[in-house]
Design a protein around this nucleic acid. Structure first.
Lengths: 204, 204
DNA sequence: GCTGCGTGTTCCCTATAGGAAACTTTTTCC
DNA sequence: GGAAAAAGTTTCCTATAGGGAACACGCAGC
């Protein structure tokens, strides 16, 4: 792949645009719409400018990492795909769970996700392990939703899976569940130690 | 006398600072050292400037998302957990909560499959647990093939995953792999006791 | 010592990210 | 329809990201 010269001068502003920037802007716009936020609201929540957000969504800028990080947080976007572009296909695997403390686990408020494959292009399912903080009593006024299906398997700890339309489901190691992830859902740990859950997510 | 001016920006005073910028630079430097690369080499591989990388590592700049993405790729860094899993949403409520254990069993000579959900209609993924007989030395002149993708996660025991196009992959508890199941594959246990493997299969 | 070389840092400059405000488009009223 | 409000875009400006080159430091061998 040809590295893109960052320093092209004299060309039109939009002449040479980011290769996968296309995706980034759309993803963010979709996520914002999904949450029913206006530019103003989302921008304020992420502590960035309204115009900046607009430009990002329209791929008219190359945003900084920090800005994207805030947006991801605000929009509760989770996307390792963004970091991966072209893929070598075939077998990709991951050695056993990385012990926490290796620096890569920065955690969101409640979950700590670890992707189980390095490259997601050309893969339809997304496997990852979540470490769910112990005693995390979250109120589910904002459910997690993403169109598609999800399979969940409890590796360790005790969790309760809350869902929008069904009764909470108490689960322990070895228990599994399959549901439509378009339905609001959220998972909390009820065990003393953190719970570890394997998810396989399928978009669409 | 001039009254104290209110914060006109609405963003708050410190809105611009990177809280964990400290960490970012260190993470990247560690990762680079880990791979034994010099600034020059790493920068070249990521198609960025040497000075840029230096500044990033010393937290003297607020790098763009694109730059970080490239670095993540070349340094094979896991996504910092602010971004995990692609978010897209939609709302549909559909049921199928199937606690594991209620599924059906299917036995073959070498494998013992246990479906992890009772009803497969309206589900695109198929999750099941295989118990692989110990010391099952199979010859793979007839690979297993089925169009689609497969995710495999070792629950217990030691197995070797043989594949048509790649080297055999030795795997233990916690290891996982993702592959195109159209490629011939087969799995044998190498441990004394039976191995238990979780599969999620996606047709297509 | 000096010279070369390899590694990392600093300086300097241009292109541009990001924010506020102006402007345009869309929606929501009447 | 028109007016007002809301949502989104573009303009303009300043601060700075990013790259090249100069610089600094370390460490060989002579």
């Amino acid at each position: 792949m040809e590295p893109i010269s960052l320093d092209e001068t004299g060309l039109g502003p939009e002449a040479a645009e980011a290769p996968d920037g296309e995706i980034l802007g759309k993803m963010i716009r979709d996520a914002r719409k999904e949450k029913g936020l206006t530019l103003e609201e989302a921008a304020k929540a992420a502590a960035i400018g309204r115009s900046t957000l607009s430009k990002i969504e329209n791929n008219q800028t190359r945003p900084s990492f920090e800005i994207i990080r805030r947006l991801m947080q605000t929009l509760e976007l989770e996307t390792p795909q963004l970091f991966v572009q072209s893929g070598q296909s075939g077998v990709t695997g991951r050695r056993d769970f990385t012990p926490s403390g290796s620096g890569e686990h920065k955690k969101t408020s409640t979950y700590d996700h670890e992707l189980l494959c390095s490259d997601l292009t050309s893969k339809r399912m997304v496997p990852y392990i979540s470490t769910i903080k112990a005693r995390d009593v979250t109120e589910f006024d904002n459910w997690v939703r993403h169109q598609g299906e999800e399979f969940m398997f409890v590796l360790s700890g005790e969790v309760i899976l809350y869902t929008e339309h069904y009764r909470p489901l108490r689960m322990g190691p070895g228990d599994s569940v399959y549901y439509d992830s378009g339905m609001g859902h959220g998972c909390v740990s009820t065990s003393v130690e953190d719970a570890r859950v394997l998810w396989v997510s399928l978009e669409g």
